[in-house]
């Protein structure tokens, strides 16, 4: 199976034409504070004064989320074609070529395997710099292959989204990538393989209306624009002013569509903690796939601590060994799910 093939070459460092040279000052677009670039970089491109999360490139997220030296890119050579022979002011093929040149990437997502806090994971990071992080057939295919890898290895999926939606220049095929990724997520869910969705600024359109909204746990960076329709389209449709903070992370949180708003500096730790809980939960049950039944969850609060017996009822741990793959589950009929 071709998707299983892994490339051993290290990911090449994408060219950083957007990055400023050392020693340059930069202005926070939110609070107008003048910031020393080096300091901003040390702070993961978050304004130290107001907490504004600057948009960063996919390789930065790879750096932030994975243990050093563990990331191995997969399917870097899956790239776009031009099924519609699409041309507006520019040919689509030229648009892609320009994006490749500008970003140093082959497509709007980088995928690979890595360790996060020592846990093996499959990671995908979309990059807004590549045609607005738009979902093309190649993007859908790379996500699908990553999800298949998760199923094969029983490893969790982590997907960082940043996208304006489907890539119009691939027409209906780009729309269908929503279905393609979502039907595989149904399999992950059925197999109890965790999927953590991380939303960054901006995540809209077909990406939000598919995999980005389907995480077992959904995290978002503060202040990210997240929505189905873009604010401009909504404003035109409803012909009224939009509410304050509309479609920002905090708005989604308030309406119940996010688990947590997590600052960039805490992403790795938060994901690691969540994955470990899932891992230990599944591995603690003695007949993982069979004995583990979803139970009514107990609402937790300071006043209502989880009773100890709840932990005990999973039985003795037989996994948890660092060398074991995460979420080793019995395969009832011995068939792989691809």
């Amino acid at each position: 199976m071709s998707w299983f093939r892994r490339q051993n070459n290290r990911p090449k460092k994408p060219t950083e034409s957007r990055d400023l040279p050392d020693g340059v000052w930069t202005k926070c677009e939110n609070c107008s504070e003048i910031l020393y670039f080096k300091e901003l970089e040390r702070n993961l491109h978050v304004c130290p004064k107001c907490g504004n999360h600057f948009r960063i490139r996919s390789h930065k997220y790879v750096e932030i989320l994975t243990d050093p030296g563990t990331f191995q890119e997969t399917n870097a050579n899956v790239v776009s074609k031009d099924p519609l022979k699409f041309k507006d002011s520019k040919k689509y093929t030229d648009r892609v070529k320009d994006a490749v040149k500008k970003t140093g990437m082959n497509e709007a997502i980088v995928t690979g395997t890595a360790r996060l806090d020592e846990l093996p994971v499959v990671l995908g990071v979309m990059d807004f710099a590549f045609i607005g992080g738009s979902m093309a057939s190649a993007v859908g295919e790379k996500i699908a292959r990553s999800l298949k890898l998760c199923l094969e290895r029983k490893e969790p999926m982590i997907l960082v989204s940043a996208s304006g939606g489907a890539r119009m220049m691939e027409g209906i095929l780009s729309l269908m990538q929503m279905a393609k990724t979502s039907v595989l997520l149904a399999r992950l869910r059925n197999e109890r393989i965790p999927y953590i969705s991380i939303l960054t600024h901006p995540t809209t359109g077909g990406v939000t209306a598919s995999f980005a909204s389907l995480g077992d746990v959904i995290l978002a960076e503060p202040g990210a624009l997240i929505g189905f329709a873009g604010p401009r389209v909504i404003k035109e449709t409803v012909a009224q002013e939009l509410p304050e903070g509309f479609q920002r992370s905090e708005f989604l949180m308030k309406h119940g569509f996010l688990d947590r708003i997590t600052p960039r500096s805490e992403l790795k730790q938060t994901v690691g903690n969540i994955l470990r809980v899932f891992h230990d939960g599944v591995n603690a049950s003695s007949h993982a796939g069979i004995a583990f039944r979803p139970r009514t969850s107990v609402p937790l609060s300071e006043h209502d601590p989880v009773p100890l017996s709840d932990h005990d009822s999973f039985g003795a741990s037989e996994g948890g060994n660092g060398s074991m793959p995460i979420l080793e589950l019995p395969d009832p009929d011995g068939s792989t799910t691809t």
Partner: peptide, 26 residues
């Protein structure tokens, strides 16, 4: 298309569509 409105966003237009895509597979 799905309605692009304030209430639709507040009540999770994306989540509702995404969930259907996934659950139809089951």
């Amino acid at each position: 298309g799905a309605y692009p409105g304030v209430g639709a966003e507040e009540r999770g237009q994306s989540e509702a569509i995404a969930r259907n895509l996934r659950e139809m597979a089951n």
